[in-house]
């Protein structure tokens, strides 16, 4: 049987994105459409969760199930969906404020689980939807609406955090390099385990420092270097490169046990397919344990 190629268009929803013209998130959306089409995953088997923020509107623009939840809680929703139905391809999305600020705890703990979901963070180093306050990845000293005298905190390093927290596919993309971004997302989706794609996704409205040009002057692809993605120490060292040279691509990749693979209650297949009357069948036995 010949499988018809699935067209990218089939993954587009009927809703037009409301992002500002030039927003980096368009490239991420295109990257997700492309990766899903290349991997031939049927729309009905894909769920995309998100939090709140400009980038968290993304699920509405993809022809797949979406769960547009609470600010910072994209990952717990995705964790729950994956545990309920391991047959689904589960993608969590959101911005830097959502994932590395209010939702930072879930980020670290989801990586410790190495649960098989792909987390795509549209990192623009600013709060966009709330009109330009400092974000957890804003540079120290940055002038924003909430830091008129300059930000007094250093930025979170999501790549380094991911590397030390147990993620097994750690990567960075750049919205200015759409082809590279699409294949990074595609590989992340194919990976079994927790995959991070941190995307440098410029905010053309509120971040006048980290612009497309600022990144173009700095980014280079790890795939073009002799970077060993099996080498955690080398990956950690690369994750600290920022000021003058910014690596994009895959920092680290490993095959490790996953939470959903090892959870005892999931050994008979997806939870959602299990019979509801298991309890009734053992009710007498369970009650006898109380005597």
């Amino acid at each position: 049987m010949v499988v018809e190629p699935i067209k990218i268009e089939e993954y587009k929803s009927e809703i037009t994105p409301t992002w500002c013209p030039g927003c980096g998130d368009f490239a991420v959306l295109r990257g997700i459409h492309t990766a899903l089409a290349r991997l031939k995953i049927k729309s009905e088997n894909v769920v995309i969760s998100s939090g709140i923020g400009c980038s968290s509107n993304l699920p509405g623009f993809v022809n797949a199930y979406g769960f547009h939840g609470l600010h910072g809680r994209s990952l717990p929703i995705a964790n729950g969906i994956k545990l309920a139905n391991t047959d689904l391809t589960v993608i969590a999305t959101g911005g830097d404020g959502d994932g590395y600020g209010i939702g930072l705890g879930h980020f670290i703990h989801s990586m410790r689980r190495n649960i098989d979901i792909t987390y795509i963070v549209m990192n623009n180093q600013i709060y966009g939807l709330t009109t330009g306050q400092a974000s957890p990845t804003s540079e120290r000293g940055m002038l924003t609406k909430s830091t008129p005298s300059g930000l007094l905190e250093v930025p979170v390093n999501p790549i380094a955090l991911a590397l030390i927290s147990g993620a097994t596919y750690v990567s960075r993309g750049f919205s200015g390099n759409a082809d590279h971004l699409s294949s990074t997302i595609e590989n992340a989706l194919s990976h079994k385990g927790f995959s991070l794609v941190d995307v440098l996704s410029p905010c053309v409205t509120y971040n006048k420092i980290q612009t497309y040009q600022w990144f173009r002057d700095r980014v280079y692809t790890l795939e073009d270097e002799e970077h060993d993605t099996n080498d955690l120490k080398q990956a950690i060292s690369k994750s600290y490169e920022w000021e003058s040279k910014i690596p994009i691509g895959v920092f680290y990749k490993a095959d490790k046990p996953t939470y959903d693979g090892d959870e005892p209650a999931l050994q008979d297949g997806p939870l959602v397919n299990q019979p509801l009357d298991t309890g009734k069948n053992i009710a007498k036995q369970l009650l006898d344990e109380f005597t």
Partner: peptide, 23 residues
């Protein structure tokens, strides 16, 4: 599946995710 999560915010959001998926 019985899951101890990192905090109660994660707890209920995970459960909502799982319920959304049909469980």
């Amino acid at each position: 599946v019985v899951k101890q999560a990192e905090d109660e915010i994660s707890v209920i959001n995970m459960a909502i995710g799982s319920s959304f998926a049909g469980v």
